[in-house]
């Protein structure tokens, strides 16, 4: 089972370019069309469960707006 992860998008920095959206292997990132950032962009966000914390979105992000978290898998003793 893949590890669980999540992302946080800094909405001060996100410009809604969708490079993260189009590259997410799990297809769990989407722009939030209901909201706008203070600079007038629809921000990207984790829209569905299934994030593995792979970091590809952060690799693509031109604004370095994404922080990626991944669960710590405890190795059996």
């Amino acid at each position: 089972m893949p590890p669980k992860g999540r992302i946080e998008v800094n909405e001060d920095l996100c410009k809604g370019c969708e490079l993260c959206v189009m590259n997410c292997p799990q297809e769990v990132i989407a722009l939030n069309m209901e909201r706008m950032t203070k600079r007038g962009y629809h921000p990207a966000e984790l829209a569905k469960p299934g994030c593995t914390g792979c970091g590809i979105c952060a690799t693509m992000c031109p604004e370095a707006a994404i922080t990626v978290y991944r669960e710590v898998i405890q190795k059996p003793a």
Binding site: R6, L46, A47, K48, G55, A64, T67, E71, V72
Partner: peptide
Amino acid sequence: TVPELDSEQVAVYQRPDALSDTN
């Protein structure tokens, strides 16, 4: 819309320090 994870997590990617906070 996605629930927070309940397991222990670490940040595996963060904005690099050598970038300023400027937009």
